[in-house]
Write a protein that binds this DNA or RNA. Structure first.
Length: 279
DNA sequence: AGAGGCACCCGCACGC
DNA sequence: TGCGTGCGGGTGCCTC
């Protein structure tokens, strides 16, 4: 699933392709993508717009257009943004929208499970509109150990559920949550409010460390994820615990376990990540 | 307000 | 082989 590193990889590659270029036209073939907009109205609004930059907060992409408005995208679970040097005919599998670029080339939004969303967001007043949707981006300076501690204090929900909460920190999904909790030696089921300040600091560092590694590896492609050029990432080979049930912990050789925490498939080392009593 | 459950989808793994 | 069933997962919304 695209999490912060995958979306960041897409952001960088897409920026290389389309920043400074003008949209020739667009076609929205799945109305659900732009609901409640009417597909032709949505597509028409893109025509002739120049792409000024591409930003990212958590797993959201903001394709900033002239006219002080951003095409805002979320890929959810199976969304892909794929570059083509022409306009593919027939369209790529699971195509929901295609954006044609002046001078040649196109970007396809493909999405087998059709959870992804697209909408417009004005630049003026955006902070007010966005307020509460996400907390600080995990890789930004605004995400601090102290801030994380403030958000965890007094909370009884398990640590994994809390770092998956995009209002606490934006960008962590199921994969990197498991990896960060392992690095920080925090049990996924441990109540977030139980963590002492040093352990919160450790968790904060681990989140940043694993996300940074994911970006460097070009994301994780254990199944569907592909970058803008259709290439796989390499992070799946660097997982320490995620999807490694039955394998040995790389630190202590204990067998990795899998269970369900926060309604998510969860992997951890029972020895490195013990449940702390009254920590 | 916090916590948990479910809907939204559909490809895929699995069992018969 | 073919069919039916269950699962997963990010987010928003709902209930308690």
């Amino acid at each position: 699933m695209p999490e912060l590193p995958e979306v960041e990889t897409i952001r960088r590659q897409l920026a290389e392709r389309i920043v400074g270029r003008t949209i020739r036209g667009a076609r929205v073939s799945d109305p659900r993508l732009v609901d409640p907009w009417e597909p032709n109205t949505f597509a028409g609004r893109l025509e002739g717009r120049r792409v000024e930059r591409i930003d990212r907060v958590g797993k959201y992409l903001f394709i900033e257009l002239d006219g002080d408005e951003a095409l805002t995208l979320h890929l959810r679970m199976t969304g892909q943004l794929l570059w083509s040097d022409d306009v593919p005919d027939p369209p790529l599998p699971y195509t929901r929208a295609v954006i044609g670029i002046e001078g040649g080339g196109s970007v396809t939004f493909a999405d087998s499970r059709r959870f992804g969303t697209a909408w417009f967001l004005p630049r003026v007043g955006r902070e007010r509109i966005w307020a509460g949707r996400t907390g600080p981006d995990a890789m930004s300076a605004a995400f601090t150990a102290r801030g994380l501690g403030d958000r965890l204090r007094g909370r009884t929900a398990c640590a994994k559920a809390l770092i998956l909460d995009q209002r606490i920190v934006a960008g962590v999904g199921n994969i990197y949550a498991d990896e960060a909790l392992f690095m920080a030696r925090v049990n996924p089921a441990e109540p977030g409010g139980n963590l002492t300040a040093p352990r919160v600091t450790s968790l904060h560092r681990a989140i940043r460390d694993r996300l940074r590694m994911g970006i460097t590896a070009g994301g994780a492609s254990f199944d569907r994820y592909r970058d803008v050029n259709g290439e796989r990432g390499g992070m799946q080979d660097l997982f320490r615990v995620h999807r490694r049930r039955g394998e040995q912990c790389p630190r202590c050789q204990t067998t990795i376990e899998k269970g369900v925490v926060a309604q998510r498939g969860t992997y951890w080392c029972p020895k490195c990540q013990p449940l702390m009593e009254g920590d």
